[in-house]
Simulated assay, not measured.
Amino acid sequence: MQPTIERYTTNAGRRLYRLPLEVFPNFIGYAYLLVEDERTVLIDAGSVMPQSVDALREHVETVREEYGEPVSLETLSLVLITHGHIDHFSGLSVLQEEIRAPIIVHDLDIGILHDYRERLVMASKALAVFLQRAGVSEERRARLLEMYLSVKSLVTPIRGVRRLSEAGDLLGAITPIHAPGHCPGQVCLRIDDILISADHILPRTTPHLAPESITPYTGLGHYFAALETIQHAARDVRLVLGGHEEPLDDLVGRIEQIRRSHERKLERFYNLCSHPRTIAELSLEHYGKRQGYDIILALTEAGAHVEYLYQRGYLTLANVDDVEREPNPVLLYRRA
Rank of each mutant, 00 (worst) to 15 (best):
R190K: 10
G219S: 06
H222I: 05
G181V: 05
S165V: 07
E245Q: 14
C183V: 15
Q186W: 14
V161Y: 11
R159N: 14
P157T: 08
S213N: 08
L170C: 14
G219F: 13
S150A: 13
T156L: 15
G243R: 03
L251T: 02
Y223C: 01
L164A: 04
E228D: 08
L239D: 02
R254A: 02
S150W: 03
I255H: 02
F224H: 02
G168H: 07
I201D: 01
A226D: 00
V240D: 04
A210H: 09
I196G: 03
L239E: 03
V237E: 00
T175Q: 13
V240Y: 05
D199Y: 08
I201A: 04
A226G: 04
P211E: 03
L164N: 06
R190C: 04
H222R: 09
S150G: 10
S153F: 10
I214F: 00
D193Q: 01
L195H: 01
R163Q: 13
L195E: 00
E246W: 07
E146T: 11
L209V: 04
F224A: 01
R254I: 02
Y148E: 12
C188N: 09
R204E: 12
P211V: 02
R162L: 10
L209E: 11
I214E: 03
L241F: 06
L248W: 09
R235H: 13
P203K: 13
E146M: 10
T175I: 14
K152V: 14
P207G: 06
T205P: 06
R190Q: 09
V252D: 10
P176Y: 00
H222N: 10
E212I: 01
H208D: 13
A173R: 08
H200Y: 15
S153V: 15
I196C: 01
A225T: 08
